[in-house]
Design a protein around this nucleic acid. Structure first.
Lengths: 334, 334
DNA sequence: CTGAAAGCGCTTACAG
DNA sequence: CTGAAAGCGCTTACAG
């Protein structure tokens, strides 16, 4: 079955390609009623469907954007993607999803492929490992918005949580519930990934605010593989903490794994609060007090910012940082 | 900054467009070493990047596939997507994600947009509401593979769980642990969605196999909004069940919500087993016995089937159904 | 070993 | 109100 093209339609309807094209683009201004009807019919009869590729080539817009996430398996990422998808759908845009897996090389490859495919813009959870590439994009005024992570020196719109505040609220909540020996459990600090560093700062600020001396032994960070032993050490400190702030959902999982294995009771023996909402917060016993990111709002904001940039071609290089408010959800774990 | 095209490169390097194109496509067979070097240099100097759109138009392949999921927020969907993404990445393909939200109209719109964008193939969790459209696709020999759901009368490769077996194993596990009063909790049966119907069958078959009389009151299905009260009724039956099979993760969540609210003890008061793995199965108390779908294998299989179809243009209409084995993960909840 | 020319399927001034 | 022609940025026989 051969593809039917605009030329076929034109021939069958006895008009020119231009006229068919006008019809397709709803420019009926000067079109005769019968011409219109004839074209419409021919399209149905032949089963013609426009080839958007050809249009894109001419119009220089693919009505497609790229989204590069760290990993689609993270709940936060999927919620952000869902929100982006929804706003794209309204505008009849499509989204190409890529997983950079926190690997700068993969990210680079994806950015280049996306550009080669002429996507109209990109939303990325930047790995931070491609500064030169980001700078090129910004210099060329290519529409791009970052999410979740701040990249030093790159002038582009960025959407992220007020991470300091999130950690601050967490500590504050614990303090108000009578805790003062508060530990922080975090993924590695090595690459100075924005949320991790900012959450650490928020923790420190809150301690200071509430005049609780900082105990370096209470700051624990490491890879998943070493978490169990790190938590063990923390719990068996001479002067162990009475509460733990898990700075993201993965770390929380590790904590709860430890807690279950060692039959520690929450909150009697240890208070727990986590940043990032988790699906089982309500059904866990005790239910888990968490600080949620407004991920849908964040995704929608990122998409809207990108569309603004795509629509107005002018160089409005007013890169801004959009901070979102963390939401405390009080439950029973501290 | 104007886009640099193959013509610019040709001009600057003092060769023809054809030669540059040969270079880009690595057809060096007859190319002079110096020509090659000169082109390479020019490309770097000018910062040329190919426009894949133009190539796609000519070559009739976009190296992009579409994936239409019911909802990306479901863990199973994201795992399937991740697997698809990974095999696509190896082949330098991209994937466009769409959420049909179980709405046939949305699915239809997406299928049409994807085809207009000339994607090379589609993997879909079919809503079941667009039979005519599916048939068109199959008739045109358009590469498409279905996942998770079987559509009556559509001759296309389909990848899905052996749902009957999953439910059978669940019941069997309960029986072997001494249960005989076993209820089934399911989402609505209205649209005869494959996994739901098959799991119900598996449940019935297992009861028969183990000579347990079927009690219609033990078969409970309904929307999320009515689940709590339905579970309540089930529990307060004169002759209440001693174990419950939750046929998917959502239903399991509802069960656990009820259990927590009413302080019912698992497995002492009620045994629980669920189909679909959940993130918190291990950390929940008691840990939850589940039957997992091999979602990554399934996604990878779907992608590979699609690529087979894309690569060989011949009409090999040997549509097959690929059943995947459920995996019992024994833990403490029954 | 390389180039001129046609063509992929559209859109868009421009002319009439 | 409609058509002829050029062009988007590539690829690909074909000729030399």
């Amino acid at each position: 079955m051969k593809k039917v093209t605009i030329a076929d339609v034109a021939q069958h309807a006895g008009v020119s390609k231009s006229t068919v094209s006008q019809y397709l683009n709803q420019r009926y201004d000067y079109m005769g009623e019968q011409t219109k009807a004839r074209i419409e019919e021919t399209i149905n009869v032949l089963g013609y469907r426009p080839n958007i590729l050809a249009r894109s080539l001419k119009q220089k817009s693919t009505t497609t954007i790229g989204v590069i996430v760290a990993n689609i398996l993270h709940v936060f990422s999927t919620q952000v993607i869902r929100a982006i998808e929804d706003v794209c759908n309204e505008k009849d845009f499509h989204v190409i999803i890529c997983n950079a897996d926190n690997q700068p090389e993969k990210e680079k490859k994806y950015i280049e492929m996306l550009r080669a495919k002429q996507v109209d813009g990109i939303i990325a959870f930047p790995t931070g490992g491609n500064i030169a590439l980001y700078q090129d994009l910004v210099r060329e005024n290519y529409p791009i918005v970052f999410i979740d992570r701040l990249i030093e020196g790159i002038e582009t719109n960025t959407v992220l949580l007020d991470n300091e505040k999130a950690a601050f609220i967490a500590v504050e909540t614990l303090v108000k519930n009578g805790y003062s020996k508060i530990a922080l459990l975090s993924p590695p600090f090595e690459h100075a990934i924005t949320p991790r560093m900012e959450r650490l700062n928020g923790y420190k600020n809150a301690l200071q605010e509430y005049q609780i001396p900082l105990n370096e032994e209470y700051i624990v960070s490491g890879k998943t593989s070493e978490m169990q032993s790190l938590i063990g050490k923390l719990i068996y400190l001479k002067d162990p903490p009475k509460a733990i702030l898990a700075t993201n959902d993965h770390v929380l999982m590790e904590l709860l794994t430890y807690v279950k294995k060692n039959q520690i009771r929450i909150p009697e023996e240890i208070g727990v609060i986590g940043i990032d909402e988790v699906s089982f917060a309500d059904i866990y016993s005790p239910s888990l007090t968490t600080i949620a990111q407004p991920s849908f709002e964040m995704g929608a904001k990122a998409a809207n910012l990108l569309f603004e940039r795509i629509q107005k071609k002018e160089i409005i290089n007013q890169a801004k940082i959009y901070r979102f408010e963390p939401k405390l959800i009080v439950r029973e774990s501290c």
